[in-house]
Simulated scan of single mutants.
Amino acid sequence: MYPKSPKPPQLTAAVLLACLHWSSAWAQNDIKLEVRTPEKSVELIYQSSFENYQRYSASTVQSWKQSNDTVKDIGGWRAYAKEITQDTDAKPSTPAHIHGGHQ
């Protein structure tokens, strides 16, 4: 009786494992890296995030009728929308990409 010969997939797996083992052994190098210490010491300065903290102060509470009348007197929601658009830069935005002669 002769022992069975390995099937091709088993033989392939055994060869690949052997190659992997040998390649990891050859991958070791003898070069030792030196850690360089900085010549100048770095001075760290601590600045707290809470240094310029401003405590929340709630606005005075008004009746809903008085609040609605105030909004109506200043021009309604359009006044708030105008405030937002006036806060942005007055520079016109240029398109990022101009295709041919189209703008």
Rank of each mutant, 00 (worst) to 15 (best):
P3H: 04
K4T: 05
K4Q: 08
S5C: 04
S5I: 06
P6N: 11
K7H: 07
Q10K: 12
L11P: 00
T12S: 08
A13E: 15
A13R: 13
A14I: 04
L17S: 10
L17I: 02
A18N: 10
A18I: 11
C19D: 07
L20F: 15
S23W: 07
S23E: 07
S24V: 08
A25E: 13
N29R: 15
N29K: 13
D30R: 10
E34R: 12
R36M: 07
P38L: 08
K40R: 15
S41G: 03
V42F: 09
V42G: 02
I45G: 00
Q47W: 01
S48E: 02
S48M: 00
N52T: 07
Y53W: 10
R55A: 09
Q62A: 07
S63E: 12
K65A: 14
D69Q: 14
T70C: 01
D73M: 03
W77A: 05
W77Y: 06
R78N: 10
A79L: 01
T85G: 00
Q86P: 00
D87E: 15
D89V: 01
D89C: 03
A90Q: 07
A90K: 13
K91L: 11
K91T: 14
P92E: 13
P92Q: 07
S93E: 13
T94Q: 14
A96Q: 12
H97V: 15
I98L: 14
H99E: 11
G101P: 01
G101V: 00
